[in-house]
Design a protein around this nucleic acid. Sequence first.
DNA 1: CGGGCTATTGAAGCGTATCAATCAGCGTGG
DNA 2: CCACGCTGATTGATACGCTTCAATAGCCCG
Lengths: 200, 200
Amino acid sequence: MNFAAHKTFLREGDILTKMFTLYSGWAFCFKLLPDGRRQILSFLLPGDSILLESLCFPDEPLPYSVKSLTDISVCAFALNEMIELTSSTEAQNKSVAKAMRRHCAAMNRRLVDIGRRSAIGRVAQLILEIEDRLGERDQVRDGAFHFPMRQEHMADALGLTTVYVNRTLDRLRKEGVIDFKRDRMKIINRALLLQTAEEE
Amino acid sequence: MNFAAHKTFLREGDILTKMFTLYSGWAFCFKLLPDGRRQILSFLLPGDSILLESLCFPDEPLPYSVKSLTDISVCAFALNEMIELTSSTEAQNKSVAKAMRRHCAAMNRRLVDIGRRSAIGRVAQLILEIEDRLGERDQVRDGAFHFPMRQEHMADALGLTTVYVNRTLDRLRKEGVIDFKRDRMKIINRALLLQTAEEE
DNA sequence: CGGGCTATTGAAGCGTATCAATCAGCGTGG
DNA sequence: CCACGCTGATTGATACGCTTCAATAGCCCG
């Protein structure tokens, strides 16, 4: 199943009977406040299973919406079959648990970022998170990788403004830490990026 | 097993063989940054199981520390026995899943709060979260309930400063929304508190 | 070559942080 | 039973990080 970029294809409150895996393209989970403010909860990369949490909690209304960031294609599975499958073997079980643990760890990290780090630290953390996740899929070459999100997405994920994200990226560029243009991110000074992520 | 207030009794990085339930008293999970900044991830109330996530991910280093907020007493169980027990019956399974789902939902809400709400909205959300959780245990009388955390804890949970939490509580008091003194919170104008929580 | 996004830049304002006192409540020891 | 001492709450003044508003520039696509 395919969706164009910028399409909300699952909505908060939906009750689902299917589960999805992101086959290609990027997406993100988010919540909206009454006045339109948006908080992005997590990014979904190719190969990620969408609705991990739903796998564990079937029959419950979805607690967030999901939107495509680029054109995407997804694979759908019947949720109940998926649950049987993933709980059938020890290996399957482990792999779901592992994905779930990572997801929780990422949520915790993001909470710390937004609660206690300055803008530059948050941006640095986000870049490193994406690099790490793409690295596992062997999609990083020389510190460079695909990075299709717009500054608006970074802002909504990090609790900042697009304008300020812009200024922060600018700072990282001028300090020679990253090279970022359009949808390509390259880490130039990894040590400094790491330090920035940890300390600011 | 008992611990005095303000004692870090589980540390980030520990690998655990036991699981705990909070029998009485309050505690909280947190992470520390290198320079001492602290982010509280969640509060644990009497009856909550500590290390819910660990139940799902045994053998992994704990991704946060846990500290008592008041004097507490906890019950310990061997983790592997607990896992067997909770996965033995359908009902047990469901109850763990339910607790896990709530926990995830709370994390999402907190992320939205810190990322996109102002100080007064965050404080309102926190008060309502605690009221809701205590209400389920039938520990709310006329909108009043036990609330032993100090302003420092609210600040560290909400990504604010103690000074600003103080000013925010003051504002809520002066607007006649809450009455809060020492370790007792009373919601006076629930409608306004709700509106503040949603819209600010 | 034009239209629509997205990025960039500048100026000004605001919300929250910081720093530094002072105050209040409570447990303790004499 | 009261003075002391500690911890946490409160208050004031000032600073700053980030937001807001508004305008311009750049890029990609048709």
